[in-house]
Amino acid sequence: MSTALRHSERQIPDRLTRPAARALKSWESLLAIVAIGIFVLNAWASPYFLDPWNLSDASFNFTEKAMIAFAMAMLIIAGEIDLSVGAIIALASTVMGVAMTAGAPTPVLVLLGLGTGLACGAFNGMLVARFGLPSIVVTIGTMSLFRGISYIILGDGAFTGYPDSFAWFGQGYVFWVITVELVIFTLAALVFGVLLHRTSFGRTVYAIGNNSVAARFSGIRVDRVRFILFLLTGLMSGIAAICLTSRLGSTRPSIASGFELEVVTIVVLGGVSILGGSGSIVGVVLAALVMGLVTFGLGLLNVPGIVMSVVVGALLIAVIAVPRLWAMARAKSRKR
């Protein structure tokens, strides 16, 4: 056997195994391992965890937040952020509550929830894309604005008595333990996965996040893309408002408080760079599962809600800090 032939026999398997090796070293693979580990720990810690209906209930811990996280991931990849998503939910829920008290049927309530989300997203997008204002400043302002309107309308009160047909979105089941929310979550993951990874629009999002100036000079309509991304975030917040209001059966101005932190945590935990330019929908899906399993497992162990908030905050800091610390450690080792 010649040397060239022996060399080719060694090289072909190496080339074939490189994609698999890269996949095993990816952030998504790590998240999958973590999710499996948390699942096993929860099953060991609580005898009630593996009950199919309990697992179905566990999906409520992440589906509504993950719906928003898909749109937020694309927004952050493009170098922007929306911290008003929880307030958009509150305002959309309040608008639906006002319409419900006026006797509006379920289809009208759904349209109003979606329309309010889109209107809030368009308002954010106009301020950022049209007037060039920083998205973090704009959405901090609209976070107070949107929730403030809800407090003005409701005060310390609440809207209750939604029609039974409306409850289907947040409490209904499609088949056995498969909830309506879980189906919406799955469809949203597929739609945003295709949009980000299989379309030219998705490629423009990555281009803008990596270098918005170069993207603009290459002919990409940067402001238009940013506006569309804020619209998508508002739309998904409207869908989440419908599901959350339906599941709770009531509207209060404090609804969805803290959603901003958890949505951003899911996105960053999913491997989306907070600086923009990189990330995947698969990572966001896995991060949502991890967050849902963590919070549900702590709930089964009767851990107080404030402790869960501490865990979420610590997780966000760790996810941002660990890659940076790892890069610094590698740079020091190379210098040595």
Rank of each mutant, 00 (worst) to 15 (best):
V180E: 00
L182P: 09
L182H: 11
F185T: 08
T186N: 07
T186Y: 08
L187R: 05
V191W: 06
G193C: 02
G193F: 03
G193E: 05
L195M: 14
L196D: 02
L196E: 06
R198Q: 15
R198C: 12
T199F: 01
F201S: 09
R203E: 15
V205P: 13
Y206G: 05
Y206K: 08
A207I: 14
A207C: 07
N210T: 14
N211S: 11
N211E: 14
N211D: 15
V213E: 12
V213T: 12
A214T: 15
A214L: 04
A214G: 03
R216H: 11
F217V: 12
S218K: 00
G219S: 00
G219M: 00
I220N: 06
I220A: 10
R221D: 09
D223I: 01
V225M: 08
R226W: 13
F227R: 07
I228E: 01
L229N: 01
F230W: 10
F230K: 02
L232Y: 01
L232N: 02
T233W: 01
T233V: 15
G234S: 02
L235E: 06
M236T: 15
S237M: 04
G238P: 04
I239L: 08
I239W: 05
A240Y: 04
A240G: 01
A241E: 01
A241D: 07
I242E: 06
I242L: 04
I242M: 06
T245V: 08
L248A: 12
G249N: 01
G249M: 09
S250D: 10
R252W: 11
R252I: 15
P253G: 10
P253T: 09
S254C: 07
S254W: 09
I255E: 01
I255N: 02
A256T: 04
G258A: 05
F259H: 11
V263G: 07
V264E: 06
V264K: 00
I266K: 05
I266H: 08
V267K: 03
V267H: 01
V268T: 04
V268C: 07
L269Y: 11
L269P: 13
G271T: 06
G271H: 06
S273K: 07
S273A: 13
L275E: 12
G276Q: 08
S278G: 11
S278W: 07
G279D: 00
S280Q: 04
S280A: 08
I281D: 11
I281G: 12
V282F: 15
V284Y: 05
L286I: 13
A287E: 05
A287M: 04
A287P: 04
A288Q: 03
A288L: 08
L289M: 14
L289G: 09
V290T: 09
M291R: 03
G292V: 00
L293G: 01
T295N: 14
F296S: 11
F296I: 10
G297L: 00
L298T: 14
L298H: 10
G299I: 12
N302C: 07
P304T: 02
P304I: 00
P304A: 02
I306S: 11
I306E: 15
V307F: 15
V307E: 06
V307R: 05
M308V: 13
S309D: 15
V311D: 02
V312P: 05
L315N: 09
L316P: 09
I317M: 14
V319P: 07
I320G: 07
A321F: 14
A321Y: 06
V322I: 15
P323T: 08
L325T: 11
